[in-house]
Simulated scan of single mutants.
Amino acid sequence: MHMKKQELIHLHGLLAEVGNYYERVSTRELELSEYESKGVRPTSIHKSKTDHKSAVFALAKGITGTMDEAESAEETVTAKAD
């Protein structure tokens, strides 16, 4: 599937909102050092399609990685409580 730059920017913005929401409703801060090092935000419309694609993947990785860690921690706590 090939996305247009505008579609990638839109996806980037949506993922950023998901990340913000997750941080608000959970007690965890997302690990986004890889994403932040890219220096590309959804509002960086002057950046290339490739830059946004890389940022989207890094942001998604940061979100899912933090969620995986949270799930593993919950499973550990639950197992110790049983």
Rank of each mutant, 00 (worst) to 15 (best):
A58M: 05
E34G: 00
S44Q: 05
E75A: 15
D68C: 01
V56C: 15
K61Y: 08
L15P: 11
K38G: 12
A70G: 10
E34W: 00
A58K: 09
H10Y: 13
L11M: 13
G62Y: 08
K5N: 05
E31V: 04
T76Q: 11
L30R: 04
F57D: 12
S48T: 15
S72P: 00
L30N: 07
K47W: 00
E74R: 11
K5H: 05
T78A: 14
A16M: 13
T50M: 03
L59C: 05
D82H: 04
H2S: 08
V56K: 06
K61T: 13
S33M: 01
S44A: 11
V25W: 02
Q6N: 09
S37T: 10
G19H: 11
T50A: 12
R28S: 12
K53V: 04
V77N: 08
G19C: 10
K4N: 06
A58E: 11
M1A: 08
G13I: 05
Y22I: 15
E36A: 12
H10L: 11
K38V: 10
E23S: 08
L59I: 07
D68R: 12
L59W: 02
F57T: 14
L30S: 05
G19A: 11
K5P: 07
M3K: 03
E36Q: 13
K53Q: 15
M3T: 02
V56W: 01
L8C: 12
H46P: 00
V40W: 03
T27G: 15
E69H: 02
L59D: 06
T66H: 09
F57W: 06
